[in-house]
Computed example of a mutant assay.
Amino acid sequence: MAARGRYDYTLLTVLGILVLSGLIILYSTSAYNGEVKFCDSSYYLKKQVFATGLGFLAMFFTAQLDYHRLKNIAWLCYLVALLLSIAVIFVGREYNGSKRWLALGPLSFQPSEFAKVAVILFLASYVTHNVKKMYRMRTLIKIMIVVLPIVGLVGASNLSTAIIILSIAVVLIFVASPKYGQFIFLGAAGAGFMGIFLALESYRLERLAVWKNPEAYEKGYQTLQGLYAIGSGGLFGRGLGQSIQKLGFVPEAQNDMIFSIICEELGLFGACFILMLFLLLIWRFFVIATQAKDLFGALIASGAMAHMMIQVILNIAVVTNTIPNTGITLPFISYGGTSVVFLLVEMGLVLSVSKNGSYCEEEITE
C-alpha cells in the first residue's frame, strides 16, 4: 500500500517497464516508415524519446505538488481546454484529413489530450464541492451539461477522444453517486447524444458499414491487414523486428494499429505481457483511489484509472475489429508526443495522491 510521504513505487516500476517496452516496440514498428519517409529509421523513436523526457519532467514536477492546491484552479484548466478546443476548429493544423493539432512554431500538440487531464481535475473538484447533492438527478444532469461543451468541441474533429472524455465523466459521477438507478437515464441520454453526433457526419456512419464488412470497402484495408498481422503471430510471434505487415501493409503502423504488430512480432504471450502491465497499472490506481484520505484524491485516481482502462480496451477492440475504427492510440505504446506528455502528467497527479493523500499501512492497522 502507498505510504504517506512516499510515492507508490510499484506504480513507478510498472510505469517504467511499460514506457521502456513501448519505446522498444515503437522503434521496431516505425523503423521502416522512418527510413522510407525521412531516411532515418530512428526518426519516430527520437521524437518519442524527446516527448517522453519532457513528460517525465512534468510528471515528477506534478508529483511534487500537493494535489489539494489544484482544486481551486481546476475550473481554469477546464476553461483553457475549452478555448484550445475552439482554437483547433478555426486555426488547427490538418493531418491525414483530421484537424486536431495546434501549431506552436515548429512544434504542434493536440489540445484534446490536455482536455482529458483537465476534465478529470475539473470533475473531481466539481463533484467534491457538490458531493452532498449527488443523490439528486438535477445535480447529475447539471454536471453532464457542464461537460458536454468540451465533448462536443473535441468530438467535432476527434470522436474517439470525445467518447473517452464522456466515459471518464460518467465513471466519476458513478463513483460519487449514492444512487445507481439514475445511470439508466444517463446511459439512454448518452446513447442518444452519440447517435445524433454520428448522424451529423456521413463518414461516421460509413465506419459502421466498413466495420460490418471490411472486405467490401477500401477503407477496410487497414483493419484487414491488422487482423492478418495478429493471426500470423501465433503464440510466440515472428520475433522482435521481424514483422512483415509493418512494411507498408498496415498504414502508419506505429499509431493506432501498433497492437497488431505487437501480436505479429511477440505473439500471444507478448501481447499478454503488455496487457498484464496495463492491468497492474490500473490495479495500482484502484489501490490509491481506495486508500485516498479525501474524495478529491480518490476521484483523481479513479479518473486516471477510467481513462487508462477505457483507452486500452477501445484500442484493442478497434485493432481486433470488435468495434468500428475510431482512431484510438494505445497509451505509452503508440507514437504521439502530446499523448505521452499528458499521460505522464496524469501519472504525476496519481503519484501526488499516493504521496500526499493516502493512509499508510500502520494507520490502517490501527
Rank of each mutant, 00 (worst) to 15 (best):
E113V: 02
A162M: 03
S125N: 14
I316K: 06
E35R: 09
I313C: 13
H129A: 11
K37R: 14
G187M: 07
A3T: 01
C263D: 11
Y221R: 13
A199I: 04
L200H: 10
V119L: 14
L83H: 01
S42L: 12
D294L: 04
K47R: 13
R204V: 11
A301F: 13
L198M: 15
L279K: 04
Y217M: 13
L153R: 07
L84Y: 10
T13D: 08
I145D: 04
M59R: 02
G337M: 04
E94Q: 11
S125T: 01
G155R: 05
V319Q: 09
F174H: 10
F296R: 01
L172P: 04
P214M: 08
S202Y: 14
Q48S: 05
F197K: 10
I141M: 13
P251G: 11
A3E: 15
C360T: 11
S98A: 15
L107S: 08
D40Y: 09
F185V: 09
S167N: 13
Y126R: 15
Y7V: 05
I261K: 05
L343A: 15
F114R: 01
F114L: 11
I89S: 13
L330W: 02
E363C: 09
P251A: 11
A169G: 09
N33C: 01
T128M: 00
Q222E: 05
G241V: 06
I230P: 01
A191N: 06
F114D: 00
Q311H: 15
M305K: 06
L275M: 09
L295G: 11
A229T: 10
F61N: 03
A103K: 15
C39F: 06
A162G: 07
F50V: 15
I120N: 06
Y228D: 08
D40S: 12
S302T: 09
G5L: 14
A124R: 01
R136W: 14
A298D: 03
